[in-house]
Structures are given as C-alpha cells and as structure tokens.
Amino acid sequence: MTAGESYLIKQISVFSENRPGRLAAIAAALKEEEINILAFSIAEADGFGVVRALVDKPDKAYAKLSARGFNVAFTDVIAVQMRDEPGGLFEVATLLGTAGINIEYAYAYHSRDAAVLIIRVDRAADAAKVIKEMGGKLLSTITIQ
C-alpha cells in the first residue's frame, strides 16, 4: 500500500434525469439510512445530470440507492484542506498547478475547522502523493468516512 492510498475518498456518482424531485428522492433515501451528505455537486447536460456526493457511509449509500433503482458508481476523489481565509483557494490552485495535476471538477465544503476542496483528478493516488510531498494538507479517508 502506498502512502497516497489512504487519502482516496469514495465519492458516489448518481445518474439522474432532470426531473423535479430526483435530488429530493436521493436525499430522502440517504436520510432513511441516516447517511450524512457532507458535500455534493450536480453536473447537468440537457435532459440528464450526475449528482456527485461525499457521504459518511459510501457503501451503505451505494447499496441503498442501487436498491432504489438508481444507477450509482464510486469515484475516487481527494479532499484538500484549505486555509479558511482569503487566498486559501489560490494556494491550493497554485500547488496543483505546480504539481502538474489536472482538475476535472471540484467542489467545496466547510468542516468545523477548515474549508475542504473535493477534487476529481486523473490517477488520484499519484496526485495525493504529490500533494502530500509538496506540503499540502489532505483529509484522510478515516476522518471523513
């Protein structure tokens, strides 16, 4: 096991039609199982979208949503901790740029003591390693899930 692996976080990605109530249906299913949604983002095309969510119990969420008939996939993402002050985002962006890591998409959430940027990159394990080496702060899998 390499050092980067414990920083890979399982995001659930759910296919959804752009119809009223689909997001609510996903949220309701997760709530029934007492699964917390830490962060989510929605990407849309015309007619459909993908709901990406970071939850505290991803396996349980996967099982529940699949049972409800949703199409669900796991995606490895990494969570970079930002200084919760102006310039925090810039720092992270600079770090990733220097490391040559290409961001496919990102979204953020606030934990109790920091702002967290969820990023989806190619070869997440390698990216996590590079970020750690360059002094970036990553949230480990254990702290979230």
Binding site: S13, A43, A45, F48, N71, T75, E104, R120
Partner: peptide, 15 residues
Amino acid sequence: EVSPEGISDRIQDLI
C-alpha cells in the same frame, strides 16, 4: 436507460 456499465461521474462520458 443508462446501464450500470454506462454510469460515470463525468458528464462528458454520458454525453
């Protein structure tokens, strides 16, 4: 219908 093989977190993949 999108099948389990078709699901992706990337919108581009679905398009």
